[in-house]
């Protein structure tokens, strides 16, 4: 079966509004960011949850990961681009602060995550299972690809900012995420295997034009936390939240993918996360959060904020997906074409 997807579009081909269009132009042509763009990026006209902001922010963050085709690596620390980024981050953070209750304790944030939902069949995984085909599994993989193809990368930025117990335990979990020394077991590689198993193209950012704001926001959140030392405790809160919710969520995905006839590599990605993250959850809460709070108890509200912001954006993404699917629409910006047998 050949990989499914629209003809490959360049990252700059489909800006999503005034800000991302002007930004893509600056990046593509090596131009300085004009002052007007900084003002527009921080202005009230930009929806803090919207496609224009999250696509622009995603492009700017990508300069810190693997870069963008045709954009000089030197622009990673371009002061004008950093001003645009700061303006977009300000809008996003203001909206998060307004939406997330704070200050909260670690117990208040994590307590509700440590229960098994009463309705195990519901949610996105339940919807994937009920189609009797793979198209929802494919859409979900595309939605998650910007995240899982850089799984654990943004969290690595926490390492130089942690010490002692928290650092040692954090690095041990990251080592596991990065395949414990084996390239074929790097979690991002396992996700690429899942995509290929579903007949998708596993190229990095290959489906970026199709991924809507609700999914990009979940990635932008961890990039934001990762790139700012001030948000290191929130990055730990994000990491701990993902590890805490991943194991049961992955078990539901194993069931869903099995029910809709996905192949072994697709199922393996989630099966690996069931047992891996049951361990990671224990280690991250005891050693990483425990160690960090021992070093600096004042960080507690930021750890809780990182967790709560993650839950908020994950709930928003699940709502986006289920609303689209319930109404018979694609959850992507462009639906994937039906795959053709090779």
């Amino acid at each position: 079966m050949s990989a499914v997807g629209p003809a490959e579009a360049a990252w700059y081909a489909e800006p999503r509004g005034e800000v991302s269009a002007a930004l893509a132009d600056c990046l593509r042509h090596g131009r300085e960011a004009p002052a007007g763009l900084v003002r527009a990026a921080g202005g009230a006209g930009v929806d803090p949850w919207g496609d224009d902001l999250h696509f622009a922010l995603y492009l700017l963050y990508e300069l810190h990961y693997r870069g963008l085709d045709g954009v000089s690596d030197d622009r990673e620390w371009d002061p004008g681009l950093l001003r645009v980024r700061a303006a977009l981050e300000g809008r996003f953070l203001d909206a998060l602060r307004e939406a997330v209750p704070s200050p909260r304790t670690v117990e208040e944030s994590f307590g509700p995550l440590l229960t098994t939902p009463a309705d195990r069949a519901g949610g996105v995984s339940g919807s994937i299972a009920e189609t009797g085909g793979l198209w929802r599994a494919r859409e979900y993989a595309v939605l998650r690809s910007p995240y899982h193809l850089k799984e654990a990368d943004p969290h690595a930025w926490a390492i130089p900012r942690l010490t002692g117990r928290a650092k040692a335990a954090f690095v041990a979990i990251e080592y596991d995420e990065f395949g414990a020394g084996r390239a074929e077991a790097v979690h991002a590689r396992l996700f690429a295997d899942l995509m290929e198993d579903l007949g998708l193209d596993a190229g990095y950012n290959r489906y970026l034009p199709a991924v809507p704001a609700a999914a990009l926001a979940t990635v932008n959140l961890m990039s934001l936390f990762g790139l700012h030392r001030a948000w290191r405790a929130a990055l730990v809160g994000h990491f701990a939240c993902v590890e805490t919710t991943s194991s049961p969520g992955s078990a539901r995905m194993v069931d869903a993918l099995t029910a809709c006839g996905a192949g072994p590599a697709a199922i393996r990605f989630y099966a690996e996360h069931v047992t891996a993250d049951a361990v990671h959850e224990q280690v991250v809460r005891r050693e990483v959060i425990g160690g960090l709070l021992e070093d600096d108890p004042a960080l507690e509200p930021r750890i809780a904020f990182g967790c709560d912001a993650t839950v908020l954006l994950e709930d928003r993404l699940a709502d986006h997906i289920l609303t689209a699917w319930t109404n018979g629409r694609s959850a992507l910006r462009h639906p994937l074409p039906q795959p053709v047998a090779a």
């Binding site: 309705d119 194991s247 078990a251 047992t275 049951a278 361990v279």
Partner: peptide
């Protein structure tokens, strides 16, 4: 191996 099934069930 643990798969977090020990977690208490949320009340319906």
């Amino acid at each position: 191996w643990c798969d977090t099934s020990h977690r208490p069930r949320e009340r319906r």
